[in-house]
Design a protein around this nucleic acid. Structure first.
Lengths: 204, 204
DNA sequence: ATGGGGGCTACACGTGCGTGTAGTAGCCTA
DNA sequence: TAGGCTACTACACGCACGTGTAGCCCCCAT
């Protein structure tokens, strides 16, 4: 907050937009509020980005570029080192933008699934539908971000910033470290789904 | 669709509202659109529900009651029998309403976490933070619903209705049946998080 | 010094929103 | 048959939104 005034107005607008888009969704954040948060007139926003859609596009592009930048830095060493603190809000923004139907991030999600499909193809996951497997894992991870407010309410601290954020990250690691269903439970559930499929098929 | 006209106008408004709220979010769906979808004037909507917030409340109440009804029917037999086809849209609505900050469903989420905490307390999950564990699992499941459009785009079929819906359900069972991280990977990730926590602590 | 262009503001425009008001048709009760 | 209540419609109000326009200031190249 202290060095906000050091940034160019364009950057301040972009940062404010990312924050408000994340917090209220694309439709929920207004141009006027973003301009006020950035300390500029709403006209300037239009001057720099043309329209709300243009601003959103610029935010998408910025976030994707920044994340790609830190991503590739650690592409060799499996687990990444200290994550720069500025990327967390960007991740949260991208997830929210994705859910709100940004074309750019939809494309990004598709690429991530494609990539994950190839990556996991070599590993030993047991699945009859690798693409759905990868896509659903992605959707689940994003659920953590999308339910930020509710998780924060239930856990008693803001899970969008480090102390609480680390807490849910730890929980997610614990979740993925162990099977949550026994083979018997899983088989039973699968059979229940098969039964539904059959009933679906015989109806029309 | 055929028997829509058999329902009372009030019920048709409620159903249309649930559909549009789910599809576009609470803020994104307008009273006028809902009224048109229900085939009534927007004034009638106001007459029956008082305000948009009142309509939303009625939708929450209806969905929660209906789901509680089928939930308790199968409380004894672990895995439930055939799920009535009308509850799937209601689940999707509740998740969306929850993310959009409905007070009623926030309370429901809290209760679900409380209950899950007690339920899993007896089971043998390995976690140092049971409440976060339960809450994050819940958030992850909801991610599947929230990312409906993106999952549908990536998988090439609508995952909000049975053929595609069963596909992602199967995937989620596969995901929870097996560990996705080896103990070594999990420990490594945990240590990485610990390191971040320490760095957080020394900064201020 | 001067002219021009980019950063920036102020303000007006049209639209669609949730809401408010007035009034009508039809049924049930007395 | 008169009265009133409920379901329902038409329409206007005020507001906030995204957008459009006109113009100011200041820096910098000529």
């Amino acid at each position: 907050m202290s060095s906000d005034s050091d940034l160019t107005a364009r950057a301040r607008i972009r940062d404010a937009a990312i924050a408000l888009f994340t917090e209220r969704g694309i439709a929920g954040a207004t141009i006027r509020d973003i301009a006020q948060a950035a300390g500029v007139s709403s006209g300037l926003l239009r001057h720099h980005f043309g329209s709300k859609e243009g601003l959103r596009d610029a935010c998408d592009e910025f976030a994707l570029a920044r994340i790609a930048q830190v991503q590739t830095r650690f592409v060799g060493s499996q687990m990444l080192g200290p994550i720069p603190p500025d990327v967390l809000p960007l991740q949260q923004y991208l997830v929210r933008a994705l859910m709100d139907g940004s074309p750019r991030s939809t494309e990004m999600f598709r690429r991530a699934v494609d990539q994950g499909e190839h990556l996991l193809g070599d590993l030993k996951v047991e699945t009859g539908d690798l693409r759905a497997f990868v896509a659903v894992v992605g959707a689940m991870k994003m659920g953590m971000f999308l339910m930020r407010d509710q998780l924060s309410a239930v856990l008693g601290e803001d899970v969008g910033v480090p102390p609480g954020y680390l807490r849910i990250l730890r929980a997610s690691i614990e979740i993925f470290r162990q099977p949550l269903l026994t083979p018997e439970q899983a088989d039973q559930a699968m059979r229940a789904l098969d039964r539904i499929s059959l009933h679906e098929g015989e109806r029309p």
